[in-house]
Design a protein around this nucleic acid. Structure first.
Lengths: 160, 160
DNA sequence: ATATATGCAAAGCTTTTGCTGAAGA
DNA sequence: TCTTCAGCAAAAGCTTTGCATATAT
């Protein structure tokens, strides 16, 4: 998610306020991790996020990354992204938006909610009461599109 | 996904054909697991799927469940569902459809693609070449809606 | 000063892998 | 008979937890 420095600072300010009002400590780890998440546009995994803050927090532990992400999710400043695969991935963009999922490399990019036409949700869907939605668009990201001449290796059968 | 016995048998027939044409063995495990997946409407995890086939395959191992699901995904007869949480979940419904995600219990139900208005996808989205989409509707499932007065368990589906 | 958080290491789960006996074709 | 597969157990990978120390307020 693109963010101006101003928006970024504003968001961090909200988070600072919220930590105070919740009686939580404002640690450098939390600030740096939150900022790194906000500056990421690729829904990083906890491990990747650790790599991104390592220059600022050389001794940070993965456990702290996990705990901080939990805090951010609980406070409503981050969300876990629904993905396939074995690792969690997080999003610091809490506005309504869609996901562009590359079927070739698995990348997940955000697209503004306004980039697709609005869907009028019915009052009820088979007894389900909808209250919002996001579209998962699948296709090819620009990187994969430009390397299409190098076909992805076909999966061979499990040889046990 | 609702399926008539006829559709179910047809689908299993396709899978049988495909196994043969690929030179793969048609084992009772594969048939039973695939059938159980097709009969599930809740996007079961591998472990839950094992529980569901245990009466027919008392000695089945979790490893076989995993391997079979891999095979089904590779052949295009199943798909991993993008979800949050720590366990994979699978879908035997390969037609275009949407997902109704309950924000209270974490259940994921299918909704026919026709249950929501069609979105005209642009040719390109920020360099991304779309080729399909599904909508993740979030809200309350009918079960959670009717038990809203009973704020008992928080989340029952994913174990975390 | 006191409550809260970090970092470490260990534990807990989920998923994958190597191997051997069993079974499908 | 000749592959391929199931089941087991071990390994690998991701996430959570307990605890002692360090830090924020």
């Amino acid at each position: 998610m693109k963010r101006t420095p101003k928006e970024l600072d504003a968001r961090i300010g909200e988070m600072v306020e919220r930590c105070r009002s919740e009686g939580m400590n404002l640690t450098p780890q939390r600030l740096v991790i939150f900022r790194a998440l906000l500056e990421s546009e690729d829904h990083p995994s906890p491990e990747l996020l650790r790599d991104r803050v390592r220059d600022q927090l050389p001794a940070v532990s993965l456990a702290t990354i996990y705990k901080t992400l939990d805090v951010l999710v609980t406070l409503g400043f981050a969300a876990e992204v629904p993905v396939t695969g074995n690792t969690k991935r997080y999003d610091g963009n809490m506005g309504a938006h869609h996901h562009l999922v590359c079927t070739r490399c698995g990348s997940v990019a955000d697209a503004d909610h306004a980039s697709l036409p609005e869907i009028p949700l019915p009052r009820s869907l088979h007894g389900f009461a909808p209250h919002g939605y996001s579209v998962h668009v699948h296709g090819l990201c620009s990187t994969c599109r430009s390397t299409l001449t190098t076909p992805k290796e076909k999966k061979s059968w499990p040889k046990n």
